[in-house]
Design a protein around this nucleic acid. Structure first.
Lengths: 203, 203
DNA sequence: ACAGTTTAACTGACCGGCCGGTTAGTACCG
DNA sequence: CGGTACTAACCGGCCGGTCAGTTAAACTGT
């Protein structure tokens, strides 16, 4: 109930996930990352599943805030900013470990409707954002009006998904891959008459 | 040692994976799908990991044979045939369950070097095939000579990966997604002067 | 040809450890 | 006093792995 504690447990879950991965994540691991004990987790949540579903909701909020923080107006900048948020190539801290754990969680979605629903929520939100920016870009004439916003948004989502999967699984370089997404967007989305974009995505 | 038994166990593993998924796959499950008992698995393999690594090798061989069976000569047909093999939209039997299990296995690759190595092997092989067909296509003039075979092959791999991830995780329609890959290939790879391709990928 | 021996393939019963979850209780606070 | 937050100790079940055999086929010496 105390918001403070819930928050602490969410962050503990994050750390535990990075350290152990989802597959070998135990309640004990999470407790050890916090100041509380194992039984307390069961006091606040209905079980492991419930805790992790809450964790996914926690992540969704976080992510939504990040997107809301984008203040770019022109569609091109905004589109690339979205790509950067959705497909981080953070060399920072334990981002890699976290992405890996998220992939594991994703792989469990087919068996855990709770997980699946949150992931879906997340995906539809992101797809919506892409669609919206694509539409405004087309209307403004900076994007090629031949592109289908809906399909292109889906395509981008899929490509981003693939990037993260391959990064975690076989260690494929994410930055390189993201460059390919950029290229794809520049050649097929941004209309030729549009002013040339150069390295908006620089670190 | 007896090839017959090994083969039976590989097929049993396949069925068990489809039924239970990787996460809750037990030695018992695999044994139950075969005519042998749990202890026999340990007699033939050094443990669960070893068995699954062997299973991945078994899959690699299978897949390689499937690719070798493609007899298309012209690059366009061959490219699309490769896509079909690498990204099946089988509504057939338990293909969905299997893809899901494979995703779980992929998600474990970061923790199991055995898995990771086999997946890498698989990926480099497939990338090589894509690269090769792209090169021949470019040389033959049927593909746009602006495409970078190496990068495009990587991009295709990533997109296919993403398709399968999203199919399993959030139930996104694979056929729809594959159509987008086709479109991508047609618009950016196949050169404009090349004869129009229509529904090579029909069922 | 055949008893004796070895060896590969296989099995049922068992074990140790771990993990999610429970429970009986404590500390504290309004 | 009552209820919220929390805890140490415990439990049942399961799973990977082991082990002490059993069966049957192959091999060996005579």
């Amino acid at each position: 109930m105390p918001e403070e504690t819930t928050d602490e447990l969410m962050h503990a879950t994050y750390r535990a996930l990075c350290k152990h991965g989802y597959a070998s994540l135990t309640m004990r691991d999470i407790a050890d990352e916090s100041s509380k004990c194992k039984a307390t987790l069961h006091y606040h949540f209905d079980g492991k599943r419930d805790l992790l579903v809450s964790f996914l909701e926690f992540l969704n909020e976080r992510f939504t805030r990040k997107i809301a923080a984008i203040d770019a107006d022109d569609p091109t900048t905004r589109l690339f900013a979205l790509l950067d948020v959705a497909c981080p190539d953070d060399e920072a801290d334990d981002s890699d470990m976290f992405q890996t754990a998220m992939l594991e969680l994703t792989a469990q979605a087919p068996y855990e409707t709770g997980y699946r629903d949150r992931l879906r929520e997340f995906e539809t939100y992101l797809t919506g954002e892409f669609e919206s920016v694509l539409r405004t870009g087309i209307d403004a004439g900076v994007f090629d009006d031949g592109v289908d916003p809906e399909r292109t948004a889906e395509f981008l989502l899929t490509t981003i998904n693939g990037t993260q999967t391959r990064r975690a699984a076989v260690g494929h370089d994410a930055a390189e891959m993201r460059q390919m997404i950029y290229d794809y967007v520049e050649t097929t989305v941004v209309s030729d008459e549009s002013p040339r974009r150069t390295e908006v995505h620089a670190e």
